[in-house]
Simulated assay, not measured.
Amino acid sequence: MYELKIALRQVLSRRRQTFFAILAVALAVAVITVMMAMLSGFQTELVKSSIENNPHIVITPQDKKEEFIHLYKYNSARIAEKEGVIAVSPKYLGQAALEHRDNAEGVSLQGVEPEAENSVMKVSEDTIKGSFLSLVHTRHGIVLGDKLAENLEVQPGDSVDVVFPGSQTTSFKVVGLIHTGTSADEVTAYARLDSVQRFFNKPGVVSTIGVKVTDPYQAEVIASSIERESGLDAVSWLEANAEILNLLNTQKIFVNVFYLLIYGIAGFGIANTLITIVAQRTREIGILKAMGASQKSIMVVFLFQSVILGAIGLVLGTVFGYIVTVALQNYEIKVPQEMYFGLQTLPLKIESINFLYAAFFAFIINIISGIYPARKAAKLDPVKAIEST
Rank of each mutant, 00 (worst) to 15 (best):
H100C: 07
P90I: 12
S89K: 02
P114F: 00
V123F: 07
V107F: 03
E113F: 14
H100R: 12
Y92G: 06
G94Y: 01
L98Y: 02
V123Y: 06
A96W: 01
K122G: 08
D102I: 07
L109R: 00
K122H: 11
E117R: 03
H100W: 08
R101K: 15
L98F: 08
S108M: 12
N103G: 10
V112P: 03
Q95D: 13
G111C: 10
E105R: 07
L93N: 08
S119K: 12
K122T: 10
A87E: 09
H100Y: 14
V112C: 05
E117N: 03
G94W: 00
A96T: 07
S108T: 13
A96L: 11
S124M: 04
E117K: 11
S119L: 15
R101G: 07
V88I: 03
G111F: 01
N103C: 09
S108F: 09
E99H: 13
P114E: 03
I86K: 13
A96I: 04
E113P: 05
K122A: 14
A87H: 11
N118L: 07
L98A: 06
V112W: 01
G106A: 09
Y92K: 15
Q110V: 12
Q110H: 12
A104Q: 06
N103H: 14
S124R: 07
A116T: 07
S119F: 14
M121K: 08
E117V: 14
E105C: 08
S89F: 06
E105H: 09
I86F: 11
G111Y: 03
I86G: 12
K122W: 14
A97M: 11
P114R: 01
S108Q: 10
H100E: 06
M121T: 10
Y92H: 14
M121S: 11
V123T: 10
A87V: 13
E115L: 14
V112Q: 02
K122N: 13
K122Q: 15
K91E: 11
E117L: 09
V107M: 03
G106V: 10
E105A: 09
V112Y: 00
A87Y: 07
V112D: 00
P114W: 01
S89N: 05
S108R: 08
E99G: 15
A116I: 12
